[in-house]
C-alpha cells in the first residue's frame, strides 16, 4: 500500500519503485519511466494522428461516394462510427486501469484512469450528437429510447460518474478506489452496447462490421478505416499527453511541498 503522495515523492527523487517492486508490469508502469518513454514519441504520434484523422474526415466528407439508400447523410458514419468505437475502447482501457489500480494499487493506473475519463466522455458526446444528427434525416427522429441508443447514453453517464467520483473525495486515494469500482461495474455495459442490436429489436441498424466481414462497400470502408485509425491515435495521443502532464504536475507539487517542509 502506498499513498499518492509517496508515489509522487518517489517519482520526484528518481525511480525507486522499479527496485522496490518487482515484475515486468511494474517496470513499464513506473511513472518516471513512462514519462521518459512517452515524451520523445509524443510529437510524432500527434503528427501521425492528426494526419490520419484529417485524411479520414476529408475523405469521408468530400470524396467518399453517397450511399444508395441514405444518400449523403451516410457520410456522418465517418465520424460517428470512429467516435463510437473509441468511446467503447476507451472505456475498456479505463476499466483495465481500474483493475490494475484495485488489485496492484499502481499509481500510474490511477493517473491513467483519471486522465482517460474526460477524453472518453468527449468522444462519447461526439458519438451521441453525430448519431442524433444522423437519425433526423434518415430515421425521422433525433432520438429514440431503443437499447442501442440508451446503452450508449449510459456509457456517457458512466464516464461522467467516473470523472466526478475520482475528483470528488478529499483523499485522492479514496476517489481512485471509488472511481475504479464504478468503472469496473460499468464494464457489463460494453457487451450490451455491442450486442444490443442483435439481442433486441432496435431502430438502430445492426453492426456493419464484425469479425467475419463487413457489409460496407470498399470505397466507403477505406475512408471509415482511415478515420477510425485516426480517431484511435488521437485518443491515444491525448491520453498519453494528459498522463505526462499529470505526472509532471504531481512532481511539481511534491517538490513544492518538499521545499516548503525544508523551509519550515
Amino acid at each position: 500500500m502506498q499513498s499518492m503522495h509517496s508515489a509522487g515523492e518517489r517519482t520526484a527523487r528518481g525511480n525507486l519503485s522499479g527496485r522496490t517492486q518487482g515484475g515486468w508490469l511494474h517496470y513499464f508502469a513506473n511513472p518516471g519511466r513512462f514519462a521518459r518513454f512517452t515524451r520523445p514519441i509524443l510529437p510524432w504520434l500527434g503528427a501521425v494522428s492528426a494526419l490520419l484523422a484529417v485524411t479520414g474526415i476529408v475523405w469521408g466528407y468530400a470524396f467518399a461516394p453517397a450511399d444508395f439508400q441514405q444518400g449523403d447523410a451516410a457520410r456522418i458514419m465517418y465520424v460517428h462510427v470512429p467516435a463510437a468505437w473509441v468511446s467503447m475502447s476507451g472505456y475498456a482501457m479505463l476499466a483495465l486501469c481500474s483493475f490494475f489500480s484495485l488489485v496492484w494499487r499502481h499509481p500510474l493506473a490511477d493517473i491513467a484512469a483519471e486522465e482517460i475519463g474526460p477524453v472518453g466522455a468527449g468522444f462519447t458526446f461526439v458519438c451521441l450528437v453525430s448519431g442524433a444528427l444522423w437519425g433526423r434525416p434518415t430515421w425521422g427522429t433525433y432520438w429514440v429510447w431503443d437499447a442501442r441508443l440508451t446503452s450508449v447514453l449510459i456509457l456517457f453517464f458512466l464516464y461522467l460518474g467516473h470523472i466526478a467520483l475520482v475528483r470528488g473525495f478529499e483523499s485522492r486515494e479514496r476517489g481512485y478506489r471509488a472511481g475504479a469500482i464504478l468503472a469496473l461495474a460499468g464494464v457489463v455495459n460494453l457487451p450490451i452496447i455491442v450486442f444490443s442490436v442483435q439481442w433486441w429489436n432496435t431502430l438502430h441498424q445492426g453492426n456493419s462490421i464484425s469479425f467475419t466481414g463487413s457489409s460496407i462497400y470498399p470505397s466507403m470502408l477505406y475512408p471509415l478505416l482511415v478515420s477510425t485509425l485516426g480517431f484511435y491515435l488521437c485518443f491515444l495521443t491525448l491520453v498519453l499527453a494528459r498522463i505526462l502532464a499529470a505526472i509532471m504536475e504531481r512532481k511539481t507539487s511534491s517538490l513544492l511541498l518538499a521545499s516548503a517542509e525544508r523551509d519550515a
Partner: peptide
Amino acid sequence: FINGAYGI
C-alpha cells in the same frame, strides 16, 4: 446535419 456532425 452532415455539417453539424463533422463540425462537432
